[in-house]
Amino acid sequence: ENVVSAPMPGKVLRVLVRVGDRVRVGQGLLVLEAMKMENEIPSPRDGVVKRILVKEGEIVDTGQPLIELG
Rank of each mutant, 00 (worst) to 15 (best):
V17S: 00
N39Y: 08
Q27I: 02
G70I: 02
G47N: 06
E33V: 10
P44V: 06
S43A: 03
M37E: 06
L30A: 09
V48N: 05
G47F: 11
R18K: 07
E40D: 01
G63V: 07
L13K: 02
M8D: 07
P9A: 09
D46F: 10
M37S: 06
P7R: 00
V4I: 04
R18S: 09
K11M: 09
P7E: 13
P42W: 00
I67E: 07
A6D: 05
L69K: 14
G10Y: 01
K55S: 02
V23D: 15
E1N: 15
G20W: 13
I59R: 13
V48K: 08
I59C: 14
L16M: 12
L30R: 15
K55F: 11
E58P: 03
L30N: 13
L69N: 03
V23Y: 03
Q27H: 03
D21T: 12
G28P: 02
S5P: 02
V3K: 13
A6L: 03
G47W: 10
R45L: 00
E58R: 07
R18M: 13
R18N: 01
V54Y: 08
E40A: 01
E1D: 01
A34G: 10
N2E: 03
Q27Y: 12
P7Y: 03
V49S: 11
V48P: 07
V48L: 09
L30T: 00
S5E: 04
K36Y: 04
V19A: 07
Q64E: 09
V12F: 08
A6F: 01
E56C: 14
Q27A: 11
G28H: 05
K11C: 14
I41Q: 03
T62H: 08
I67K: 15
L13Q: 03
V49E: 15
N39M: 04
R24A: 13
V19H: 09
L29E: 15
R22D: 11
P42I: 06
E56N: 13
E33F: 02
M35C: 14
M8Q: 13
G10N: 08
G10L: 07
Q64C: 14
L30I: 04
P65F: 01
M35Y: 09
E40V: 00
R22W: 12
S43R: 15
R22Q: 11
L29T: 05
V48T: 09
E40K: 05
A34F: 02
R51P: 06
N2G: 07
K50C: 13
A34T: 11
N2T: 01
K55Q: 05
E58S: 12
G20A: 11
L29F: 06
L13V: 03
V17H: 02
M35G: 11
V31C: 15
L32Y: 00
A6Q: 09
G28R: 11
V49Q: 06
S43P: 05
R45N: 00
K11A: 10
R51W: 02
L16E: 13
E56K: 13
L30G: 09
P65T: 09
R18P: 13
P44M: 02
M35A: 04
K55A: 04
E38W: 05
D61Y: 05
P65N: 01
V12S: 10
V12E: 15
D61N: 11
E56I: 01
P9W: 10
T62R: 13
L30D: 15
I67T: 04
G70P: 02
E56Y: 09
P44Y: 06
P42A: 08
I67W: 10
R51K: 13
V60Q: 11
E68V: 13
D46N: 07
D21F: 14
I52M: 02
R24L: 02
E33T: 04
E56S: 12
P42N: 12
I41T: 06
E68Y: 14
L16W: 11
E40S: 07
V19F: 03
G20L: 00
I52S: 11
G47Y: 14
V31W: 08
E1R: 15
G10S: 11
L29C: 15
Q27L: 10
P44A: 10
L66S: 01
L32I: 12
D46M: 10
V54T: 06
G63Q: 12
R14E: 03
S43T: 10
G70Q: 02
D21N: 08
P42Q: 00
D21I: 13
D61E: 01
P65M: 11
G70A: 12
G70L: 00
Q64N: 00
D61K: 11
L13I: 13
I52N: 08
V4F: 08
V3C: 14
E58H: 05
N39V: 08
L32H: 10
S43G: 00
G28S: 00
R14N: 04
V19D: 10
R22S: 06
L16D: 08
V49P: 12
V60R: 10
L53D: 08
T62P: 02
E68K: 14
I52P: 05
N2P: 02
V60H: 03
R22T: 00
V4S: 01
